[in-house]
């Protein structure tokens, strides 16, 4: 490099008649490069400084949809005391809802589990504080805040053809029956927790519960149980409810052993007292 530069300098020096073509000197070129660099940095830095605050302001206040605005108001009157501003959660009170999705909010609020009456082993189903529409509005707010699973549209989320219901039965028995029981009655878990009865659960509630895994229920994401399989499971559950027990009084479908025991105990006692009564009339 230095050899080339040196040679050119020597070649130019004797001919001063064409100054326009005089290459800039070594030091001058270095100076120019430095100035250009500083100028570029200043412009970029200045642009960034000018634009960056505007960008961060835009992130803080995304344009919420009309539903989400309603939901935000509801959120800030109730949910905020445990889940905190911007749904980031409050230590030892309520978890963050970022990523919970509207499906989880609709389930928890729509079934009355949230807002909780008190901190206890498990949020219980109770008469809902908000209607399902209001729950959906809060859900829209949480959804636009942090994303997450959402429910499909429509109230009737169930398969109705017998083949799908039969497949739903297989899926129910292998995935659900351990906790919710063969007859949908639910059952006990550890330390005061329990799997609730499915007898008064709607299609939408069951769908949301499978999708989000509320409380201690495992999550059944769409890759694990496809939407069609979820509809099949719901179809099975709802058809089980619609079916009358063919043997008469089914005792909440606790099964043949409990039925036999009941027939034996109640039947025997009734027969003994009937016998005593007949003998006593003599």
């Amino acid at each position: 490099m230095s050899w080339k530069l040196g040679r050119r300098r020597r070649a130019v020096r004797p001919d001063d008649a064409v100054p326009a073509f005089t290459p800039p000197g070594r030091w001058r070129r270095r100076l120019e490069a430095t100035v250009r660099l500083i100028a570029a940095l200043t412009i970029v830095g200045g642009l960034y400084a000018a634009l960056a605050p505007g960008v961060s302001q835009a992130e803080d206040t995304p344009p919420l949809s009309a539903d989400a605005v309603q939901g935000k108001q509801l959120y800030e009157t109730t949910c905020i005391s445990c889940h905190g501003p911007n749904a980031q959660g409050v230590e030892n009170r309520g978890p963050s809802l970022i990523g919970a999705g509207s499906a989880a909010v609709e389930f928890q609020v729509g079934t009355g589990r949230m807002p909780m009456a008190r901190q206890e082993a498990q949020a219980q189903k109770k008469p809902p504080h908000y209607s399902w529409e209001q729950a959906a509005q809060i859900g829209a707010y949480i959804q636009e805040l942090g994303g997450g699973p959402t429910l499909p549209k429509g109230q009737k989320l169930r398969a109705t053809d017998e083949k799908a219901i039969s497949r739903g039965g297989e899926l129910y028995r292998i995935n659900c029956s351990a906790c919710h029981g063969f007859g949908l009655g639910g059952g006990a878990l550890s330390s005061g927790k329990y799997a609730p009865s499915l007898n008064d659960a709607s299609d939408r509630e069951i769908y949301a519960a499978m999708l989000t895994g509320p409380q201690n229920m495992p999550v059944f994401g769409d890759a694990q149980l496809t939407p069609e399989e979820k509809l099949a499971v719901i179809g099975y559950i709802q058809s089980l409810k619609a079916n009358k027990d063919p043997g008469g009084f089914g005792m909440k479908r606790f099964g043949p052993v409990s039925e036999g025991l009941m027939i034996f105990l109640v039947g025997m006692v009734a027969l003994v007292f009937a016998t005593l009564w007949i003998a006593g009339k003599s």
């Binding site: 995935n175 895994g213 495992p218 999550v219 059944f220 994401g221 890759a223 694990q224």
Partner: peptide
């Protein structure tokens, strides 16, 4: 295919 917090 298995959701986090899920089982099969």
């Amino acid at each position: 295919e298995i959701s986090a917090g899920g089982q099969i």
